[in-house]
Write a protein that binds this DNA or RNA. Structure first.
Lengths: 104, 104
DNA sequence: TTGACACGCAACCATTTGGTTGCCTATTAT
DNA sequence: ATAATAGGCAACCAAATGGTTGCGTGTCAA
C-alpha cells in the first residue's frame, strides 16, 4: 500500500498512468514521446509503477508493452479514501465551527 | 492536487490523519504521544498536511488544535480514482489476456 | 549481414526529504 | 513572580529521489 501511495506521489508517474489509461499497451518509446525527460528517466518511473503493481509489462519482440493494472488504485479508493468518507459532513461542520470560534 | 498526493505519500502523515480521524481536534503534544519521533518532526509533517489543506488548525491558548479537512481526500477520490474506475473490468481482462499470451 | 532501433545497466549528480539538536517565546499554574 | 508547559525557529545531517550521461545487448529490417 505504501508503494502505491509513493508511486502516485509523483506527477510524471501519474501522467504515465493517464497515458496508459488513454491508450493501454504502449511501448517504452511510445510513452516517452513528447515528454521532457530521457528514456532512462521514464524507465525508472515505469519500474516504480511496476514495483507498486500499477502497471504490468509484456515483452513483445524488442518492445516492452505496458499495461495498466487498475486494482491497486481501486483498493486505495476502497480501503483508504472511503474511510474518510464516513462522518465527512460532520467533520466539515465541526471544522467550520472551530475555524470561526475566534470571537468566543 | 500535487500537494495532496505528496502529503499522502508518507506513512507517518497518513498515520497522523488516521489519528485525527479517530479523534479530531488534538493538540500537537497529543498527536506526538506514542510516536517514535521528535515533536519537531511531527510539526513538520503537520505543516505539510496543513499546506496541502488536509488539516486546519486553531490556536487555543498555548495549544494548537488540529482538525481534519476531509475535502481534498474526497476530491482525489472523485477527480482521480473514479477516472480509473471506468473500464476497470475491461482493463483487467485485457491485462490478464496479455500476461498469458506467452504461447501465442 | 550489417545497421538501426528498442531497451537495459551502472555510475554519477543536485535537490528534496525526513529527521535531529539547540535554543527561544508565549501561556498557564502554583 | 516563577516554574512548568506548549509550541516555534533555524541550522544541520544522512538518505532517498529524480534526473542525467555513457555504454552494452538483443532484435528487426534492408
Amino acid at each position: 500500500m505504501d508503494d502505491v501511495f509513493k508511486a502516485l506521489a509523483d506527477a510524471s508517474r501519474r501522467d504515465l498512468l493517464d497515458r496508459l489509461h488513454a491508450r493501454n499497451g504502449q511501448s517504452l518509446s511510445e510513452l516517452c514521446d513528447g515528454l521532457a525527460m530521457t528514456r532512462q528517466a521514464v524507465t525508472k518511473h515505469l519500474s516504480i509503477l511496476e514495483a507498486a503493481n500499477l502497471v504490468a509489462t509484456v515483452k513483445h519482440g524488442r518492445e516492452k508493452l505496458h499495461y495498466l493494472n487498475p486494482v491497486p488504485i481501486h483498493q486505495i479508493g476502497e480501503r483508504w479514501i472511503k474511510k474518510f468518507e464516513r462522518g465527512r459532513m460532520a467533520a466539515l461542520s465541526e471544522l467550520k465551527r472551530k475555524l470561526e470560534e475566534r470571537d468566543d
